[in-house]
Nucleic acid binder design. Structure first.
Lengths: 144, 144
DNA sequence: CAATCTGTTGCGAACGATTCGCAACAGACA
DNA sequence: TGTCTGTTGCGAATCGTTCGCAACAGATTG
């Protein structure tokens, strides 16, 4: 976990970019959250550590990270706003609650099954599988 | 197909709404397209038939249709903009090409598999499964 | 150490998609 | 005919996101 920031520095430097404080703030927020965050959520947490960091820099950091395959952007949720998470190789799927808007992700063989189905049945070079299930999450179901 | 407009009228009237020309124009565009359209694409086609129909009315028709479970909104694609399609009971999954942005959908048992997996393994009341595969579509793959 | 080069920032304005408020309008029904 | 309610077009407002730009900061060179 501590090593992750220096890893970030290596990747950035390898591509001719610099490790700056807005960047590692965004990175560490994503790291410790471990889930899908909107730009606003990231900005809030970054600004708690450093209120001078501008929202544009956060977007810029996120798009840069995405270009370097460090994070993944997805358009889940009830509104169309984007969410980001640390890119991890494990396949997983998303469970979006349309009552509270929360996004969970779970790992499992499901996505592998899908991939092999696609390979068998469809001429489509799938580089990314996004399995989004919307419904009511446990918490919201308990609450009523 | 011709019956679908009168069906629309019935559903609307049953809920205290009226069948108006902006509404059936939006409806018939969605019907004949048979795929996922953005609001802009719908507006273009509607305006070809009647240039006086305003974009707000199109959005209003779409959200109304969605409330009545007549259409489904999804946020696929490369950008986060919304797309709509006629709601149909058959489970299907989406294949989004990130080169040309096209969205195809395919039916099949895949989504059923997912549903039963969820029932077995997760406490999540899934009312909607959106399986989105991004990659390169056949056309774009051929073109290079 | 100074000069320079390049990547990066904050700021504010601009943007595209979507929603809102409102006054005018149109069927339905008394 | 008058009234009631749902619906419209219009323009302004909103939201998330991107852009242009001048200022800045680290690294590199002389």
């Amino acid at each position: 976990m501590e090593s992750s920031v220096s890893e970030l520095g290596v990747v950035l430097r390898d591509h001719g970019y610099r490790l700056t404080s807005p960047r590692w703030l965004v990175w560490s927020v994503l790291r410790s959250a471990g889930g899908h965050l909107t730009a606003e959520q990231i900005a809030d947490q970054v600004n708690q550590a450093d209120p001078t960091v501008n929202i544009s820099s956060i977007y810029r950091a996120l798009t840069l990270f995405e270009d370097l395959d460090l994070v993944r952007e997805s358009h889940l949720g009830i509104d169309g706003s984007a969410r980001w998470e640390i890119a991890h190789p494990d396949d997983h799927f998303h469970m979006v609650c349309h009552r509270c808007g929360s996004v969970d992700h779970h790992e499992g063989g499901l996505v592998d099954q899908i991939r092999s189905h696609l390979g068998d049945h469809h001429a489509f070079d799938a580089n990314n599988i996004d399995l989004v299930v919307t419904g009511i999450c446990q918490d919201c179901a308990d609450r009523r």
